[in-house]
């Protein structure tokens, strides 16, 4: 599963986004469950929590709360936006 969009300097991987930051999805790997959960291009997500030692990232997408493991969060490119 690989991102297909060239990253720009303002893009970063979701795993590196700080807690409580809002961001827009720029590119993501092809995974049907991601799309079904609302994680798709241009989706607005907020990072609610991060967990140390390789833990997942907890996101808020609209009203849903979704946890993504480190390995997949690192493959999702986002750009931070004002919340």
């Amino acid at each position: 599963m690989k991102a297909v969009v060239k990253s720009k300097p303002e893009h970063k991987c979701l795993y590196d986004v700080q807690k409580n930051c809002c961001c827009r999805v720029v590119a993501m790997p092809e995974h049907p469950l991601l799309d079904s959960l609302g994680i798709c291009s241009d989706a607005l997500i907020t990072v609610q929590n991060k967990y140390r030692f390789g833990g997942p990232v907890l996101l808020k997408i609209d009203t849903a709360t979704v946890a993504l493991g480190k390995d997949i969060a690192r493959q999702i490119l986002v750009e931070e936006v004002a919340s």
Binding site: H31, P56, T65, V66, A67, G69
Partner: peptide, 8 residues
């Protein structure tokens, strides 16, 4: 093993 993708 796929990474965690779960709705809470």
């Amino acid at each position: 093993v796929e990474p965690l993708i779960i709705e809470v």
